[in-house]
Design a protein around this nucleic acid. Sequence first.
DNA 1: ATGCCTGTTCTACC
DNA 2: CGGTAGAACAGGCA
Length: 258
Amino acid sequence: MPELLEVEAYRRATAVVVGGVITAVQCPDPRFLRRTVDAAELSAALADAAVVAVERRGKVMLVCTDAGHTLGVRFAMTGRVIVDGHEPIPELKYGPRGGDTASPRFIMSTTAGTVTVVDPRRLGSLHLDPDLTQLGPDASTLSVAELRSALECRRPLKAALLDQGRVAGLGNLLADESLWRARLAPGRPALDLDMDEERRLARTIVATVAQLGRRGGSHTGDLQAARDARGACPRCGTPLQVARIGGRTTLWCPVEQR
DNA sequence: ATGCCTGTTCTACC
DNA sequence: CGGTAGAACAGGCA
């Protein structure tokens, strides 16, 4: 998926239907609903309602209606949004080629436009009135205090950052980029950070999210080329270390990141 | 053919 | 309880 930045682009594109009335929703593949919601129930909850806002929390896009119901969309690895035939992110690095409208999983027709969620792998999911209390504070506005409480666990630092219940929105690329910029080793016990390091990391995460957002996505980090090539640290030239941390392939500079 | 991938969730196990 | 590892989900690409 789409990490927070890509979901934010989807949110912005989807927001063109704010003010429109939902005329129909279709779920061509019932498996996309998982067991979280029934197609008929979803349709009944959304049909004839007006879209009053499209929001985002972490990697979840929220379509809010005046009927009191909110639709939550998780994009997982290869989910994309197409609004009136236009794609906010034409090419997703690990997704299908841009312009590919095969594999529609959810189509919401409104008087202000049509939103289609495409996801060939079906790893994404739809949720009616999702429980947002399960999500941590959004990474884009993370404060030092929020980060500190997110790190109160006996886990590697990176595993804590990827845990959406602790910090919402960071994925594998943003996490590695932020840790590299903050010069903190991903395998450090999360509890070990001193106040100075917590301040540095919180500030770096917010700045990294903002800068990569301006550049165009999670894949625009300074570490990305070296990551793809399994190369060297762009700052000091030390070969990057590779390991699995928090269940994901992790790259870091063994000299600078402590 | 094999294995990897911007993710989540489940089970088994310690 | 808190934590980890691996599989599953499933498609495309090197």
